[in-house]
Design a binder for these strands. Structure first.
Length: 440
RNA sequence: GCCGCCAUCGUCUAGUGGCCUAGGACAUCGGAUUCUCAUUCCGAAAACCGCGGGUUCAAAUCCCGCUGGCGGUGCCA
């Protein structure tokens, strides 16, 4: 048998869409599984819908995801090829020219049948449900129908893996292959991916391109894993699979027929799982690179947080973030002086105690504490203070937390303070007290 | 309208005639641990397997009809 060749064939009408990830992934997996070849084809035959930068975004996204492809075909660069083939059909009498376009002539009677790889379903279309269609537009560019048939024949694509929205036009394609006298490839029409309103996932559902997910701090492994499972369960029924493991287990025949709803909540959960599974040193690097990318290169190694600083915080935030972007709100108080919203102090239950008085006591205790501050002593000191004041220890810790960070939620207090440093901690509390003597 | 695809908890799914009084995961809700938040650990609720007919000793699983959802119906892809 010939080598298995698959391809991902998006049209550059926008940034690479998250739904396209699954199509690309399955095609990639089929190739890998069969030691075949996976390539990319840019379907840019509609000049009106062409979006500048889209091709680059698709390539970048594929690379970022780790879906390596060999071979790149750009349809607009081989216009003449399609023209030649369109003419050939005209010469054969199977197509005709009208108003500058070349139309495929649908035979009078009969039907097309084919077995789709997905769900091994048999699909039958009557010719009379089909109308003549354009192969070559009057601007000289091919339509999808022609380009698909010509390219996938030349590229020896088999199976053709594409979204189910193509299913209704498959008879056109089969007829065209036959008109040329070429072998018809096998088709795998992947079920649609739906938005929460159950209509085809699109920009209306929050327009999520791969690059946006990347910017949001999603990991490629998590995206791949989640998308793979939208319509497929590995025979092993494992929950987490690497690309290699997927390639081993994947069989296009196991892909479901029913459409699936894209659920970002589950993707986020999975991303969190991947973050937790990542080695600290690797996570440190990922966060560092992520922050640099976010700042579009304006972040230099001298800016905060530095790689060393991130390294110290990683163990504290690893179990607290679902996305790399969560790192920022959770830790920025460590590198920047906090802005205080006095409202948050009201959420600390200190009975009728005066916050300023309590903070004064905190400062006093901290100054008494032997340096370097030790975790046990720190804790004991403030538990004692809480007892003296007759309030829960948690309230005291919470007050210190807010005083130091301006936030109700932070990584563990003492560890955060250690990163902040003793002087900075004291300075922050003192300046808070002096800045807002009344309000507190 | 016409053509086509699909149909198990809110979501992703297991399930290919008896192991199913339908299992898992996310989300949700309780509870335990805890200085906040998270993590982790327990537990609960959640699908009369879209509806109606068959076939069979036996159906979520096979067949038919219906309904519903979605897709296509472009010199877009």
């Amino acid at each position: 048998m010939d080598k298995v060749k698959t391809r991902f064939a998006p049209s550059p009408t926008g940034m690479m869409h998250i739904g396209g990830v699954r199509t690309a992934l399955y095609a990639y997996l089929v190739a890998r599984k069969n030691s075949g070849i996976f390539s990319l084809r840019i379907e840019d035959t509609d000049r009106n819908r062409f979006v500048e930068g889209a091709t680059e975004d698709i390539i970048d996204s594929l690379k970022w995801l780790g879906l390596d492809f060999e071979g790149l075909v750009i349809q607009s660069e081989r216009k003449e090829l399609y023209q030649k083939y369109a003419r050939e059909l005209v010469d054969k009498g199977m197509a005709y020219e009208q108003e500058g376009a070349i139309w495929f002539k649908i035979p009078k009677d009969g039907k097309v049948e084919f077995n789709d790889l997905i769900g091994s379903r048999k699909v039958v279309f009557d010719f009379n449900s089909q109308k003549d269609f354009v192969l070559l537009k009057s601007d000289g560019f091919p339509t999808y129908h022609l380009a698909h048939v010509v390219d996938d024949h030349i590229m020896e694509t088999n199976p053709v893996i594409r979204a189910e929205e193509w299913l209704p036009s498959t008879p056109k394609h089969i007829l065209t292959f036959q008109a040329f006298g070429w072998d018809v490839p096998q088709y795998a029409h992947l079920p649609l991916i739906l938005g929460t309103d159950r209509s085809k996932l699109s920009k209306r559902h929050g327009a999520r391109s791969v690059s946006e997910f990347r910017k949001d701090g999603f990991l490629p492994e998590a995206i791949l894993n989640y998308m793979a499972f939208l319509g497929w369960t590995p025979p092993s029924e494992k929950e987490f699979l690497t690309l290699d493991e997927m390639a081993k287990e994947f069989d296009i025949k196991d892909v479901h027929v029913a459409p699936g709803v894209f659920d970002i909540t589950k993707l986020e959960w999975m991303n969190g799982e991947y973050i937790r599974k990542t080695q600290n040193s690797k996570l440190k690097t990922q966060i560092y690179q992520y922050l640099r990318e976010l700042s579009e290169g304006t972040l230099t190694p001298q800016d905060h947080p530095t790689e060393e600083e991130i390294e110290k915080v990683v163990p504290l935030i690893k179990e607290r973030i679902k996305k790399l972007s969560d790192f920022i709100p959770l830790t920025d108080f460590l590198w920047e002086k906090p802005e205080y919203d006095l409202e948050v102090f009201k959420k600390i239950k200190l009975d009728n105690l005066d916050i300023k008085d309590v903070l004064d006591k905190v400062v006093y205790k901290l100054e008494e504490l032997k340096k370097p501050w030790k975790s046990e002593e720190f804790e004991k000191t403030f538990r004692n203070l809480a007892e003296e004041l007759g309030v829960p220890a948690g309230s005291i810790f919470q007050l210190i937390r807010v005083a130091v960070s301006g936030q109700l939620v932070t990584p563990p207090l003492f560890e955060s303070i250690q990163i902040l440093g003793e002087e900075e901690t004291l300075a922050r509390i003192k300046s808070l007290v002096s800045k807002y003597p009344r309000l507190l």
